[in-house]
Structures are given as structure tokens and as C-alpha cells.
Design a protein around this nucleic acid. Structure first.
Lengths: 164, 164
DNA sequence: CACATGTCAGTGTTACTGACATAA
DNA sequence: CTTATGTCAGTATCACTGACATGT
């Protein structure tokens, strides 16, 4: 069986037979797989009242710290690599959707504490479960040993790409 | 050695030890690798007068058809999955940058023929060569057999994801 | 006074929707 | 008249920059 990357590379090698495309065969598959998975995740998220992937990531960051699911906008911005103003906008949307709450910091009156609401926690866990299901669909054709091999090969790549 | 996906999954399994994250270990690496590669490609493109990845893809579509590197906006839009108005904007930018030219269709006076200029062709080939170099860097840690294995495993995934 | 935190207003980017001019 | 092609104007989305209010 041939996938779309096979077809695309074939078209290229007709046009440029001088090039070695073995690297492209790997990297383009990675890019294509990421695109397809992201499409599905995006569709999945959209079904859950939080349209924007960035907003969703913001909730994930809060969920990941564990009880009591609280961070300052400052900390969130650093984790998410978003400017303070950009983050402010995300928080506005998420607060309006009832996914998180802002309250004043008890001692530092400049600061704010952002916390995931009950509803926000539930949504994250729900989406997360659905995401794992989606991954299982994507990996259905690979047995456990294949998965491990794939993960190991990809780790080598990531380390080469400077993923600390 | 551990990459960022290892760290992230470890944090998650602290918080949710009930979940099986072996699928996430694979898929998140694919997503992360795609992100890192796309960052580098984006940086590479930006150095070449065509800032926007979509504009670049438009040029690639023209390059790929081979001599004389011509398509109609209609055909381009279908290939690139962009609306006609959206494509029109891309063509405006690329034409202004001297990368392509529009001329009237000889018989159909509604239609237009878009062609890659000499400069556009050179730019595509240059960027393409640099992209292949970039892929080599990403794959430096994998020998030829590993690459083949990786490509094969990813093909299985893509076919499962419905990549025709 | 210098620095930190968070928000707001205005801007830039890019593609979309819907309307339109022209032609087949 | 219906359909096709391409363009234009206006809109939406989202984050950024820079300015600002407040507080340490």
C-alpha cells in the first residue's frame, strides 16, 4: 500500500531525479501524521465548548499541576510561551466559558490566581480520555513492540533536534 | 537520555497514574518532532523573501507540475484547499514579489494562467535543497535501516488515519 | 525610584464569506 | 438564463506591541 507521501515523493522524483529523498520520506510522514492527528484533535476540542487549541493548552497546564489546579498568569505565560496580553485574552474567554476563575492573590495585591473550575477539570479529563482513544485508533496497526521501536527512533530524532 | 515528551508524560502519570500513555508516547513525539521541524522550515523560508508558508506551498505546487510551471488559480485552489479569494490574495503577494506572473488565458477570457518566474523556480529549488539538508540534520542519528523502519512504521499509521 | 504584574487598546496577519464583474 | 472564473470588500481570529494602572 502507498500513502500520500509515497505519491508526492514519486511526483518529485519524476521532476527532480537527482535528489535523495529518503530523508523526506521520513520527515514528511511525520509532518503529515502530525497534521492528520491535529485535525482530529482540533475537531475533538471544538465539540467541547473550547474552540481554540491555545485556550485548551492553557487549561491543560492548569490540570497538569494537580490540586488545587492553580497558577498565576505569569507562570502560565512562561509555560505556554504567550505574552502577558495574549494570555489575558485567553483567560477572558475561558473565564466567560466557566472553565476557570480568577481571584486576587491573598498577599500580593498586584497578582492574580487562576484556577480551573470543576467544569474545567471535567472537560480536560474528558477530552484527554478521548485524545488517548484517538491515539489508539492511529496506532491500531502497530503492535506493542512496533510502538516501542517507533517511540525510540523518534526520541533519537528529537534529541538531535535539540529537544531538551 | 530523555526528551521533553518523556518529562511531560512523567508529569502526567504522576497526576493520572490510571492512564496508559504508551500511545501518547508515540503520537506526542510525532507532534513534537513536526513542530520542531516546522519551526526550522519556517525560519528557512523567512530568510528567502517569501514569509508565508502558504505562499510557499503555492509556489511548490507550480514547481511540482514541471515545465512550463503553469496552473490556473482554479487548479491551484483545488490542490491547496484554499478558497478562490484566499488564493487571489496569495497570488497578489507572490506576483508583487516577482515569484510568479499572471497572464490571460489565450482562449477563455475569464481565465488566467499563473506561472512561476525564473526567480520563483530558483527560489523553490534553493529552499528545497536547504530543506533536504535540514532533514539530514534531523535524521543524523539514524542509520539507513532505521530510516527505512521509521518510514515503514509511519506509513502504517498514515494508512490507518485514512491517508489516501 | 526601579521593578513586577496584569490588563487594555490598537495593529498585523491571513484566510474566510458573500457580492460582483466578466465571460462561456 | 445558468454556470464558471477570478477579484474585491468586509469580517473573523488570535496573538503581538506598547501604553498604562496598580502595587511591591
Amino acid at each position: 500500500m502507498t500513502d500520500r507521501v509515497d505519491s508526492a515523493l514519486e511526483a518529485w522524483s519524476d521532476e527532480r531525479p537527482d535528489l535523495d529523498l529518503s530523508g523526506a520520506a521520513v520527515v514528511n510522514r511525520i509532518r503529515r501524521a502530525a497534521t492528520l492527528i491535529e485535525e482530529r484533535i482540533s475537531a475533538l476540542i471544538t465539540r467541547h465548548e473550547v474552540r481554540n487549541p491555545g485556550d485548551f493548552d492553557t487549561m491543560v497546564a492548569l490540570r497538569r499541576v494537580g490540586e488545587p489546579y492553580e497558577l498565576s498568569p505569569k507562570q502560565l505565560g512562561e509555560q505556554l510561551l504567550v505574552t502577558s496580553a495574549g494570555l489575558s485574552g485567553r483567560l477572558d474567554r475561558l473565564e466567560a466559558a466557566g472553565m476557570l476563575a480568577r481571584r486576587p492573590h491573598p498577599f500580593d495585591r498586584r497578582a492574580v490566581i487562576v484556577s480551573l473550575t470543576q467544569r474545567g477539570q471535567e472537560l480536560i479529563d474528558e477530552v484527554h480520555a478521548e485524545t488517548l482513544d484517538l491515539y489508539e485508533i492511529a496506532l491500531a496497526g502497530l503492535e506493542s513492540g512496533d510502538r516501542q521501536r517507533l517511540a525510540d527512533l523518534l526520541r533519537v530524532m528529537l534529541l538531535d533536534l535539540g529537544d531538551t
